[in-house]
Design a protein around this nucleic acid. Structure first.
Length: 693
DNA sequence: TATGCGTAGT
């Protein structure tokens, strides 16, 4: 009898050990080893099955997990919960919920699992529904999970309402409420709440420090950090990261050196600070000094090498990494893809045991951005669980290589579409010169009840511009006004272009004037608009206005405008640029402007003088000499302004200070009449425009 | 409460 008990005890002990091993193997991504062990086990208990299900779930093998779940001899509560967790992890909410409903008994864990899943996904209404349905007394964890959910969605008011309703609050509840404020940049309210907190611990202080860092108020962060009664390692790391993020890497290092109890995270944070500052050698030094590295340390270094373009070094590290986790592998993968080294990317991709959906998508995006839709399609077909990103990427990929039929096929194959799917289709039509189809899609989209976003409007307005479809464009403008996207730069710029291309340059000007901020594209659109509508003079004036604005860097942006200008830049534009370069002392751009200008006005002395002066101010005396020489060489001299016109096959030349000719008086008189007519026209269209708005 | 990676549309 004793002997038998001993044997049973040993068996139990053995099974227990093997079960634990399965769990461990599953966690470290060694799923094949786990399966092997499982199939070799002669005695299994319910925990064995549960461990195996969990291991399969953790490695993305949800169907195998379900199969095992359906065929296991006896299921307990943990089996159900494990399977539900797997479904939730793979976003199969419906199946998870079906199991949740079907399970014979639910414990607190099952409920919290479902509720916290919904709060994490930001689907708070569903979470709230379950929360309200919970049949027993809700413990404090339920409330906390809801508050966290509201906080993460920025719904502070609802979080606060729930917080105020709570029958019992522990310090975690107080901190969660505080984090709603600090995580959403509401530091004024946060501070107020913090002052009134009934329960406070070091976490509360850390949250305040982190919150201030997040809004860029480093002084207040430092103040709270110094005031923290018993700072822990998190306090130090938070402050260290704050300093690093504001580029104060020396101060961060000083803090790091002062730390008494450094842990892995402190080291990782410091390494990450160096990596973000492109100081890869210093990061490597710290990395090699570390006693205990974790997967964060490895990933940070691998990513660091990727970002300085040393892919081979990154790969070397990945090979050395003891337990490769998905983050490190993904860093390597995206490094290869960004450098278009697809063969090596493929290799890494194949090495990843627990490939998640993003890994697949990353590969597909890589191929599609290279125009390799054949390869993208292979992966797309191979993929079991596709999400919206997968489908949308395929649409975009086909559109970019001009295969709109394929793009439409993919689009039509989608069961669920979101606004990005529609935008991708509309953009595709637009890019392939099918503006009419773009507008039709817009109508369909609205008809199907999808709310257009700023991107939809920007694209569809471009389509209107291409078609010079003023009426549709106006209707869309109206929709933009109602949608609240008017102040979006992309939409604003598209509106400017639309009105300009439809010949309503004054409307374009009004849109431009109303924008809160403008960028190069806005200027470009407006200037091009004036030029297209025959207002050359205004275009040049506007351009001068643009280069004379205060902002540093505007000068190079102005050059970008000229380069991107749909019309060929003329002497006026280059002259304005040259003058602006002189004012700002930008010799480099000045030379380019002068060079261009010499093509239009090879003999205009003032251009040469301006350039020579700039060179002199910069102390480049050799260049001054060269400019003077080339001025002589081209015999630059003051040339009178001159203009030609062809009338009935005869060329007429007008020159300023030209002696009176018989027609001259008549010409001037006609010109005066025309000018006044044009300015009257301007007034008319402006006032009728105002009436319309 | 702190550290690492990655996917779609202008």
């Amino acid at each position: 009898m004793k002997q038998n008990l001993k044997v049973i005890g040993e068996h139990t002990n053995h099974i227990f050990k093997q079960n634990t091993q399965i769990t461990q193997l599953g966690k470290s991504g060694q799923i094949h080893e786990a399966v092997k062990l499982f199939s070799e086990m002669t005695r299994k208990n319910t925990v064995t099955y549960n461990s195996m299900i969990s291991a399969l779930n953790k490695n993305g093998k949800f169907n195998d997990a379900r199969h095992l779940f359906d065929n296991m001899p006896r299921r307990n509560l943990v089996s159900w919960n494990t399977m539900i967790a797997g479904y939730l992890h793979s976003d199969r909410i419906d199946e998870a919920y079906r199991l949740f409903v079907k399970m014979p008994k639910r414990d607190r864990f099952s409920w919290t699992l479902m509720i916290s899943y919904f709060t994490r996904k930001g689907e708070l209404e569903k979470a709230r529904e379950l929360f309200d349905l919970f049949p027993h007394k809700r413990d404090v964890a339920f409330w906390n999970v809801m508050i966290r959910g509201y906080g993460e969605k920025g719904r502070i008011v609802e979080a606060r309402r729930l917080f105020d309703e709570m029958p019992l609050r522990v310090v975690v509840s107080w901190n969660l409420m505080l984090s709603c404020y600090t995580r959403n940049g509401e530091m004024r309210l946060g501070r107020e709440f913090f002052e009134g907190m009934a329960l406070r611990d070091v976490v509360s202080w850390n949250l305040m420090v982190d919150g201030f860092i997040e809004v860029g108020d480093l002084d207040s962060a430092w103040e709270y950090f110094e005031k923290t009664p018993y700072p822990n390692v998190v306090s130090w790391v938070t402050m260290l990261c704050g300093l690093a993020r504001s580029g104060k890497i020396l101060e961060a290092r000083r803090l790091f050196d002062q730390m008494q109890n450094k842990n892995v995270v402190s080291w990782n944070a410091m390494i990450s600070a160096y990596v973000k500052d492109y100081q890869i050698e210093e990061a490597a030094r710290l990395f090699s000094d570390m006693a205990n590295r974790d997967s964060f340390s490895w990933t940070t270094m691998i990513d660091g090498y990727v970002h300085v373009g040393r892919l081979d070094k990154a790969r070397e590290l990945l090979n050395q990494m003891p337990y490769k986790d998905i983050a490190a592998q993904t860093a390597m993968l995206s490094g290869y893809i960004k450098n278009k080294r697809m063969d090596e990317a493929c290799q890494v991709f194949n090495e990843i045991a627990a490939r998640d959906i993003v890994c697949w998508n990353t590969m597909i995006v890589g191929y599609s951005q290279m125009g390799r839709m054949d390869k993208a399609l292979d992966l797309f077909k191979e993929m079991k669980d596709k999400d919206l990103v997968t489908w949308n990427t395929m649409i975009i990929g086909y559109a970019q290589i001009g295969e709109m039929e394929e793009a439409v096929k993919i689009f039509n194959g989608m069961k669920i579409k979101n606004v990005v799917s529609w935008n991708s289709l509309i953009t595709g039509f637009l890019q392939n010169g099918l503006s009419m189809d773009a507008l039709t899609s817009f109508k369909l989209m609205v008809h199907e009840g999808i709310t257009p976003d700023h991107s939809t409007f920007a694209c569809s307005l471009s389509a209107c511009a291409n078609l010079a479809a003023l009426q549709v464009g106006k209707q869309m403008h109206n929709k933009v006004l109602k949608s609240g996207h008017l102040n979006d730069l992309f939409v604003g710029n598209a509106l400017i272009t639309m009105y300009a291309k439809c010949g309503r340059i004054l409307c374009a000007q009004l849109i431009f004037d109303d924008l809160d901020e403008v960028d190069v594209i806005s200027w470009n659109s407006l200037i091009t608009g004036y030029a297209l509508n025959g207002y050359g003079k205004q275009a040049v004036q506007l351009f001068e206005q643009m280069v004379s604005k205060g902002r540093a860097g505007m000068l190079s942006e102005a050059f970008e405008v000229v380069r991107g200008l749909k019309i060929r830049a003329n002497a006026g534009i280059w002259g304005a640029l040259l003058a602006a370069c002189k004012t700002r002392g930008n010799l480099k751009l000045g030379k380019i402007a002068a060079e261009q200008l010499s093509e239009f006005e090879p003999r205009k002395t003032s251009n040469f003088v301006l350039l020579a002066n700039m060179q002199a101010e910069a102390g480049s005396w050799d260049e001054v000499e060269n400019t003077r020489l080339s001025m002589k060489y081209t015999e630059a001299e003051k040339q009178p302004g001159c203009s030609w016109i062809e009338v009935r096959h005869q060329l007429h030349c007008f020159q300023s200070n030209m002696p009176m000719q018989p027609e001259t008086a008549e010409v001037y008189s006609n010109l005066k009449t025309l000018t006044s007519q044009i300015s009257n026209l301007d007034c008319v269209s402006k006032s009728s425009l105002l009436d319309n708005l």
